[in-house]
Write a protein that binds this DNA or RNA. Structure first.
Lengths: 159, 159
DNA sequence: TATTGTTATACTCTATAACTATA
DNA sequence: TATAGTTATAGAGTATAACAATA
């Protein structure tokens, strides 16, 4: 049993509102609503991936490497929005678990091409299923139309 | 000049998509869209509060103490979803900046009642204005109706 | 000169656990 | 016994800076 919040980074903070507290202006801010919603989403993600040691950035990395085989660590870092040194540590983790491997880049001997192993492909397929399922339940009380609307509005916000 | 990403916790990672990259299943996940939207929101927040040393949790703490004067550190921690030790460090920060103060709790000599100072009240008033303004611009391309819809759907998601 | 990967180092945030004083 | 605040310590994640190899 993993003690909560130790092995996989900061544990998603509780989303529950505290009764009797006045939240004042927070209730009118899109930013605060986003934060609360993301905590709920983290929660769903952790339920989906319990026991795999998978975090959101690691899942993202698996998906990105899977869909863009041969990309470099620098590009992976850029996609994830982290520094090169961080992309390296993340790649190290994937390689250590034998989920991905570094192959020499055919045209540039400074960089690696990243590829999923068979094991990585297989885990990714599993993860995609469960993450998608839990992500679907995330909007448990949302209708399919509302869900699509939300997704569209969020994309518009982030563009 | 503050070097980016040093004094105020992790710098919001870039929200820009990398051209030529296949994002695969990520584009269908509410959780991923939420993350991207929240990065944009962080960005707006940091623009709003540049130079104040204010982070989202610190802003939240100011608002909560302001609207619920006399509450204890433990309750503050529960509202923020952090451990008591963290609530204490956060309170220390507010007290050090003379934005809040601890007063003996009238009925329980184990706990403090937290209150904003005049300076805290004044800063909070400023912050509310700018944060609200930037939060409004956050959905720059959203109509007022879309904004309300988004807020409602996010609340429904997190409930 | 510029870039890739790497290494070393530091910082922020959060957590748990143990301690104290009160309840 | 249980709780509030505190202190000490540890871990994850990220950043910057400097270095070697290569472009």
């Amino acid at each position: 049993m993993r003690p909560p919040g130790s092995a996989r980074g900061p544990r998603p903070t509780s989303v529950a509102r505290v009764p009797g507290i006045d939240y004042d202006v927070l209730d009118t801010l899109l930013g605060y609503a986003l934060r609360r919603a993301q905590i709920a989403a983290f929660d769903a993600f952790y339920r989906a991936t319990a026991g795999h040691g998978i975090t959101p950035p690691r899942f993202t990395a698996l998906v990105i490497v899977g869909a863009n085989p041969g990309l470099s660590q620098t590009v992976l870092g850029r996609v994830l929005g982290i520094a090169r040194s961080g992309a390296m540590l993340l790649t190290d983790w994937l390689v250590r678990r034998k989920l991905a491997e570094r192959r020499p880049h055919p045209e540039d001997r400074r960089s690696w091409g990243l590829f999923l192993t068979l094991r990585g492909e297989s885990l990714l397929a599993d993860l995609k299923r469960t993450v998608r399922a839990h992500d679907g339940q995330l909007g448990g009380t949302l209708t399919e139309t509302q869900r699509r609307t939300l997704l569209r509005l969020l994309r518009q916000l982030a563009e």
